[in-house]
Design a protein around this nucleic acid. Structure first.
Lengths: 134, 134
DNA sequence: CCTTGACCTTCCAGTTACTGGAAGCCTTAC
DNA sequence: GTAAGGCTTCCAGTAACTGGAAGGTCAAGG
């Protein structure tokens, strides 16, 4: 398999696959012409990584997850712990975004959005109305 | 005011303020010793930026918002439009994170998290159980 | 006057995870 | 033979800082 087929089947961009090889996340054999040649096993790894990335795991997490996946003596506790850490991270981001969202939505609602310069959004940013700040 | 006072009063790191100056977001006068000297006006701008950043606006958005803030002939419609665009962006991120969260939480629940290697999380990543995928 | 510690300066490198583009070789089909 | 499309490497850029090194400045204490 050449890189484009792997890209199509894994859902990753060819560039991304080259990048993953560069940082040592996967390996690729080379044909006599210098082209990368992929076996099913590498495709499988790449699909694994693509799935993990789509769940928001960092590249470092992916590396660890791949290591655990390939370790027949792993304890699922280790996987679970890693996943929980990531879940906490997601929850923190969610809380932050939700806080932003609610403040922003309130400000947008208050803004008439017409030709006049008066604007509660700018007033809030300028700190002119600290009482209303969430 | 020296940079550290401005940092304290704006809530930004001194490094960040230097960076904002470097990219032309704010200006700072210099004393005879080469130190940056800030007036209240610049502090105010920096606090404005800090607040906008805390609502998730990008640096480019901050630049635009500052421009609008300083334009006495602005139309609040322009501010509102910018803010709405950002709100949409936040909503997209929220949806993405929530999707990740729900899948991840489900997988974590299913994982016994003990010394054994069997792990629904890894199985999902490996695509061994596509039916259960969210 | 000297020293010490807390400031301040600039500059360079690193972070995350790619992405775009240039220059150039390889393959396949017509 | 040539044109299209795929492959290669390498370099640069993205966002928004952050850390650290090397070195100048300032105020207080002895």
């Amino acid at each position: 398999m050449n890189i484009k087929d792997v890209a199509r089947r894994s859902g990753l961009a060819a560039k991304t696959i080259r990048y993953y090889e560069e940082i040592g996340l996967v390996r690729a054999a080379r044909g006599s012409n210098g082209y990368r040649v992929f076996q099913e096993a590498e495709l499988h790894k790449l699909a694994f990584i693509a799935r993990a990335r789509s769940l928001g795991f960092s590249i470092d997490d992916c590396r660890a997850l791949l290591g655990l996946y390939e370790d027949r003596n792993r304890a699922s506790a280790n996987v679970k712990e890693l996943a929980k850490g990531h879940l906490d991270c997601i929850d923190r981001k969610l809380a932050e975004l939700q806080a932003m969202r609610s403040t922003l939505a309130r400000l947008i609602e208050q803004c008439s959005g017409d030709h006049r310069p008066d604007c509660p959004i700018l007033e809030d940013l300028a700190g002119q109305d600290p009482a209303r700040r969430s």
